[in-house]
Write a protein that binds this DNA or RNA. Sequence first.
DNA 1: GGAATAGTGTCTTTTAGACAGTATTCA
DNA 2: TGAATACTGTCTAAAAGACACTATTCC
Lengths: 325, 325
Amino acid sequence: MKTYETSDEEKKFFAGYDLTKYDRPSVAADVVVFSVMKDDECKDVRRLQEKKLKILLIRRGGFPYKGCWAMPGGFCKKGEDVIDSARRELCEETGIDDAYVKLVGVYGEPGRDPRGWVISSTYMALMNARACHLKAGDDAQDARWFTVELTDVSTEMSGAGGHSVNEMSTKVSGTGEEIVKNEDEASRKVQNEKRYRLVLKDADSDIKLTAVLRRTDMSSCGRSSDSYDIEECEGLAFDHARIITEAVLGLREDVRRDMKLAFDLLPERFTLTELQNVYEQIWDMELTTPNFRRKIAEYVEETDAYQAGERYRPAKLFRRRTDVR
Amino acid sequence: MKTYETSDEEKKFFAGYDLTKYDRPSVAADVVVFSVMKDDECKDVRRLQEKKLKILLIRRGGFPYKGCWAMPGGFCKKGEDVIDSARRELCEETGIDDAYVKLVGVYGEPGRDPRGWVISSTYMALMNARACHLKAGDDAQDARWFTVELTDVSTEMSGAGGHSVNEMSTKVSGTGEEIVKNEDEASRKVQNEKRYRLVLKDADSDIKLTAVLRRTDMSSCGRSSDSYDIEECEGLAFDHARIITEAVLGLREDVRRDMKLAFDLLPERFTLTELQNVYEQIWDMELTTPNFRRKIAEYVEETDAYQAGERYRPAKLFRRRTDVR
DNA sequence: GGAATAGTGTCTTTTAGACAGTATTCA
DNA sequence: TGAATACTGTCTAAAAGACACTATTCC
């Protein structure tokens, strides 16, 4: 950043100026950490070989929300950009310092933190689980990976059900009236309501966190002119259920726009089946293999290596192409 | 938001707790206000009938960056969510209180504001120029709409030119070595560099603001794991050249993902030609009319009204469909 | 009628989706 | 050999793009 040049007149201004006269919030940087991994110590008899999409949560040892689970994060330090605070917190927790990190949202609703005025700037991070080493709990800190299930339950819930469409006077034709009126402009805004159920599970400890969110989507669309309400919440601290929901929805969209993002969730070399599984986990849907491979071909390149140690035909290992936009 | 319940033990904790012991930043909410409108008082002889994409800027009357142009914005107040601060500033400036508002980014780079530690949470707003009434300058405030030109000048500038691709040992085949190595993992990260020229013009006053930005896109992609450098800047305050650039790039992407966003830039009724022009302005490209109309058909519905006062065949007026997702 | 813009029909190309099939490995 | 997964070829449907065409209004 260029240094700012100051005139004498301006120096005088700054001398008498004090930003700290005004009310200021505390600013936190929180991170929704995504990865894909197996439920290794799976207690069930049925084998779940597929890797699951997971997020990292930490059990709060102190007030407020003592005992609840929260995203890793902490307060921003002076002299540090907000995203760098997020990266610092991320690295302290996982040892990873070069993850893909992207802004999810800014959360400053009054009352969201009982300690006072705290604004959270929340980021999502994508990382390869293999490279990640969770911090050895210094203060008996409990950090765990939770599987993520986010489903749209709009139709099965209360209300008129479904998309509660505004059915309005769509055609008043035949009047011969040709003059443009502005009267009903406001009332023609689209309003849409959706309900999501978020379920986070840790297979090891049988911990299950759940929440139900109501999203009211005013005006046109886009993921950010909406408002969210937490209707139910079990075991998650603060408004983190809402933030995690937005992060998961954001991840789905981001990966749809740019499939290359998924590479950040895998080690450098991977089989195409593993890669396909990542997209299936993120989008919560099955893909047909031949079509998927045709689509992904432009982003990957073969290596000479093959997967080892599997029970059947070994798959060729691929890696991302570095020469493609 | 649900109220938080407090135990006696927890009450004791809060009594001894003081967030304000720690360093806190000032938090500002700034807004990149977009609209489309004609250069009405066009001085040139050639007629430019097309409406242009414009942003609203305000001339700074005081230090710092006195005389430079900046986005509307101001400090957040306690008891107000950050996006609501943005809406409040927007309404004070334009009289519009129901615009589409969406987060662009959080800017907290040390040194970005010479007054001290100021974090800007920046939003974009889309509005219909007709409904907007600029604030009558209470302190001789100067607010103007500037046309936006943002062009990729990567190839015509210094450096190796173009996308500076990492051409690495893509195939070392023939060695028979089948063991997966992790050594070069870090060095295989994609790194891309782009250069943008931002030109903002006000036809009335012949004011022209320019900047050149360098964007280094680390890791995979996505608009937010990148870093921006302001290489040149004429007449824009703070880091607003960078923020405006990100907002314009974001708008292009957002509208590509959801074409319905463009309706927020127009009055309730519009001709399809006007609508097409909006997309052409945003994406800085020409669209072919028949294909555009086929694409947009699902989002609009006819009205009985026709455009009036034009020199040739009057066009039918349409409006957005409110019953479509 | 001419100028200018509004609006349509249809062909081609590209992309996405469905699905049947072959190939290779281990036990 | 069979079980299980890896991988491919090809048909079909849908979306995007190109482009020539007709229609309506004002002057």
